[in-house]
């Protein structure tokens, strides 16, 4: 986690510097889903990981044991990653040793070299990166614009529209999969990256919600005075709102990047030529083709995970804030 850890055990996240809080959602109301999302977002999303001092036990023994229990409870979450690293670095003889050995001895990159010889790994990574970067741009621009509109425009009927928007959170993606596929087939987009990028221009409700909360928590007259000064709403959005929204932009960008990088169903449906595959799809295709080369597949899995683990390590703070604000669906 990359929030700065305070001596007292808390962590500092943006809200504490007074930059604004995802907190108040009073206006969202409490109708069904809206109330729920609102309730979560009220959790003062931008300063969440600060523990309540009261949480620390006053009782001696419990206090001493607790860190140990916490570590033990977390171990199962880390083991698959450690096992992946250990396995991927094992020479093939040790990989299939029975009974298995724990650590590679010596660690070797031969599995990775073997996988790279069979499939164009840099190409797969480049494809994933391209799609992810364009998806991030599309998501940030559209969600912030719509969120800004919901936060500032006094348009009549804004509230029912917002309710509809939030309601789409409850619609499972699989319900829209088939019509979307038909639409993109008709447009002749199958086999291109367009179906993986263009839908992000239509914003996800969670991201719109996140931006709206952010903008609502800025001083209300800020955007009004900009417009009094002759700026149109688009200018107010781009020149005034966006530069202030960097934490929200960071959160949404990281989400969009990770979502795009991990996506499997989208590339599976829309990409046809192996040259165009993302790393996820390429990895799935690889394990299907080389079923008996699991040592290569595991090395490739490690390569596929590293970029997103790196993003997580750098951006954990923003991811956590976004999740706490309700900005993630599993």
């Amino acid at each position: 986690m990359s929030e700065r850890v305070l001596p007292g055990g808390g962590s500092l996240v943006p809200g504490e510097s007074g930059a604004g809080s995802v907190g108040s959602v009073g206006a969202v109301g409490s109708v069904g889903a809206i109330g729920l999302v609102g309730a979560v977002a009220t959790v003062d999303g931008w300063s969440i990981v600060r523990p309540v001092g009261e949480a620390r036990s006053r009782r001696g023994p419990l206090r001493a044991v607790r860190p140990l229990v916490a570590v033990l409870a977390v171990v199962p979450f880390a083991v698959p990653f450690l096992w992946l690293v250990a396995s991927a670095l094992k020479p093939v003889g040790q990989f299939y040793a029975f009974p298995p050995t724990i650590l590679p001895d010596p660690p070797s990159l031969e599995n990775l070299a073997g996988a790279v010889a069979l499939v164009d790994v840099p190409r797969l990574l480049a494809n994933s990166t391209l799609i992810a970067v364009l998806s991030v741009a599309a998501t940030v621009l559209s969600a912030s614009l719509v969120g800004f509109a919901f936060a500032t425009l006094p348009a009549r009927g804004r509230r029912p529209l917002f309710v509809v928007l939030i309601a789409t959170i409850l619609v499972p993606p699989s319900a829209t999969l088939i019509p979307q596929f038909i639409l993109f087939s008709r447009l002749g987009w199958v086999g291109s990256y367009l179906p993986l990028i263009v839908p992000h221009l239509c914003g996800s409700a969670f991201f719109v919600f996140l931006f709206r909360q952010w903008f609502r928590n800025q001083p209300a007259n800020l955007f009004e005075s900009a417009e009094l000064d002759g700026a149109n709403p688009l200018q107010a959005w781009w020149h005034i709102a966006m530069p202030m929204a960097k934490p929200a932009i960071a959160a949404v960008a990281v989400f969009a990047f990770v979502g795009s990088w991990n996506d499997f169903l989208g590339p599976l449906l829309y990409l046809r030529s192996p040259d165009s595959f993302t790393i996820s799809l390429g990895l799935a295709a690889f394990q299907g083709t080389y079923v008996n080369q699991l040592h290569f597949t595991l090395a490739l899995s490690l390569v596929a995970l590293l970029p997103v683990v790196a993003v997580f390590a750098v951006a954990q703070r923003w991811i956590v804030q976004g999740v706490a604000a309700g900005g993630w669906r599993g």
Partner: peptide
């Protein structure tokens, strides 16, 4: 921070690679 990160990481990176692991 590290412990919370370790618990949270699987959910963030989940996909083809973690399924294969």
């Amino acid at each position: 921070t590290l412990l919370r990160g370790a618990v949270f990481l699987p959910a963030v990176v989940s996909g083809v690679a973690t399924a294969l692991v």
